[in-house]
Design a protein around this nucleic acid. Structure first.
Length: 498
RNA sequence: GGUCCUGUGGCCGAGUGGCUAGGCAGAGCUCUGCAAAAGCUUCUACAGCGGUUCGAAUCCGCUCGGGACCUCCA
């Protein structure tokens, strides 16, 4: 089976065919750097990191573009028209760009912790004001936007009328019908500028107190939210590219508006495949600023939050996210994260045991086991091809764990698996666990403390040899008290885990 | 109100109509000086009520619950 991707646009899984053979253009909506990233933000970036890694594994040359929204948008359209970033900057007595830089740095730090590969291009909205203005001018020239009082709005109704005929009605992505929306859209203040409630801003006039402002043909102002992604994705990936990703909450209106803008400018829908990750919830509710239930990533990593029973390693977060399919909601909970932590440790214990196994048999003495192992390994590719089913990949790998550990502990005779299968297992697990899923072992084994532990282990060995169990138990118990666990192996050696 | 999603065992979660998902926790056994780890075995499920079917967690209907979007939002 070749790669199948669930396309939000068609609401079904489709076989992935790139526009240009061997190449993939991938655009993912990045963060608004007006605040610190939280657990919810980790999801799309981990999800699409795996998409990127897997496409690369499939030998595609991928251009991965993930933007940074550093030009703020109005908090709520029409209401006070205040820029998120400039508002906070005043409160914190910082320059807007200073604030942007601070949160961008924090975001990059978090991405690094999560072991996300950096995108090929990370364009900023402020760095592409000219491109955005050009695009807006084009939309106006074509008659699908109008300027009023220094702002520019997209004429949704006109667009819908004309482009429905071309198969691109407004609402095509989110499954909405414009007429319904016009009836149900809430009344917001200061909407009299707009011809229609559904119209959205391409450019906003900046009131005097607004710090971030740029000159434009319509006066000083700042770009609307949706236009940056259209301008930057088409600049770096072309008028039509392969995959556009982001959180489900961006499907409407953000991505819907992107389609409309691009359809006018480039006469086609910007992306072939739209991928949307689901939300991380907390007590069943979406984690988000408006719900006041966010746990920042830095808090998660440090354990410094009332809802956290302990600190969680970034790899635990990554593993936690990958244990679920990206289109399902994922509920946060200490119990769940603790389970992930233990699972991840067990996974890497087995992984290291496997890499140390020395294949010795030409032939397997247990045909059935060998067959099972082969099947579990082969399914890994199928599962990834099936819309990136990382949860199933991990489940299969866990099914291999007992066999690996039993071989290592000699609970299974060494001849049950052939050389070929053991080698294949070593290669495939390395590929899937570290390269594709991007997981890393959280037991760090490279520092002085480990040398000290080794000294204690040797003392314990000597005590045991003399049957001085009082001393040997004391060493073991005292180490256990600070979280270092000693294990007496079958062969008389002693290993440990942190 | 409109559109859509969802309800799986103590917790988190896979599930394409028929076969043990998996992780964590629990129980028993083996191994061990004793442990831990590991291995083996094992208990808890498919919100409720109907229907389709030889057979449904999986399809359909209804009821009840939860959620998302419609407004900044990953």
């Amino acid at each position: 089976m070749s790669l199948q991707i669930y396309n939000s646009l068609t609401r079904k899984k489709e076989r992935f065919n790139p526009i240009t053979k061997g190449h993939v253009g991938l655009y993912v909506c990045g963060p608004t750097v007006s605040g610190e990233s939280h657990l919810g933000h980790a999801r799309p970036y981990v999800t699409f990191d795996v998409v990127y890694r897997y496409l690369t594994h499939l030998k595609y040359k991928v251009r991965y573009v993930r933007n940074i929204t550093d030009a703020g948008h109005f908090e709520e359209e029409g209401r006070e028209a205040e820029d998120k970033i400039s508002t906070k900057a005043t409160i914190e007595k910082l320059e807007p760009m200073e604030l942007v830089q601070k949160y961008t740095n924090l975001y990059h730090w978090a991405m690094l912790q999560l072991n996300n590969i950096e995108p090929s291009i990370e364009p900023t909205a402020t760095g592409h004001i000219v491109e955005q203005i050009n695009m807006i001018e084009k939309i106006i020239a074509d008659g699908y936007a109008y300027a009023i009082n220094g702002s520019v709005y997209f004429d949704v109704e006109k667009y819908n009328t004309d482009f429905s005929k071309k198969g691109l009605p407004y609402g095509i992505l989110s499954g909405r019908v414009l007429e319904d929306m016009l009836e149900t859209t809430r009344e917001l203040d200061n909407q009299e500028e707009k011809r229609n409630k559904a119209d959205f801003a391409l450019w906003k006039n900046a009131p005097p107190e607004h710090i971030m402002r740029w000159k434009s043909p319509w006066g000083e102002g700042f770009p609307g939210w949706h236009i940056e992604c259209s301008a930057m994705s088409s600049k770096y990936l072309g008028d039509e590219f392969d995959i556009h990703g982001g959180g489900m909450d961006l499907q409407f209106p953000h991505h819907e508006c992107e389609i409309a803008q691009s359809a006018v400018c480039n006469h086609k829908s910007p992306a072939r495949y739209w991928m949307h990750n689901n939300m991380i919830t907390i007590n069943g509710r979406k984690m988000g600023k408006s719900y006041n239930n966010v746990i920042k990533l830095s808090e998660l990593f440090s354990g410094n939050h009332p809802l956290l029973a302990q600190a969680y390693h970034p790899m635990v977060i990554r593993f936690f996210i990958l244990q679920t399919h990206y289109r399902s909601t994922l509920d946060f909970g200490n119990e769940a994260l603790q389970a992930s932590e233990k699972g991840l440790k067990r996974l890497f214990d087995a992984y290291e045991n496997l890499q140390k196994l020395e294949p010795v048999n030409e032939k397997s003495e247990d045909a059935e086991l060998e067959k099972n192992v082969l099947q579990l390994l082969n399914e890994l590719d199928e599962f990834m091809n099936d819309d990136f089913s990382t949860a199933k990949v991990l489940a299969n790998i866990f099914e291999l764990v007992p066999t690996i550990n039993a071989l290592k502990n000699k609970q299974l005779p060494a001849n049950v698996l052939s050389n070929g299968v053991i080698t294949l297992m070593q290669q495939k697990l390395k590929l899937f666990i570290t390269n594709i899923l991007g997981l890393k072992n959280i037991n760090d084994t490279n520092n002085k403390a480990n040398d000290v532990i080794q000294i204690l282990i040797n003392l314990r060995k000597e005590a045991k040899a003399k049957k001085d169990f009082v001393t040997s138990d004391k060493i073991r118990n005292d180490l256990a008290a600070i979280g270092i666990q000693l294990k007496d192996e079958k062969d008389g050696s002693i290993s440990y885990s942190l």
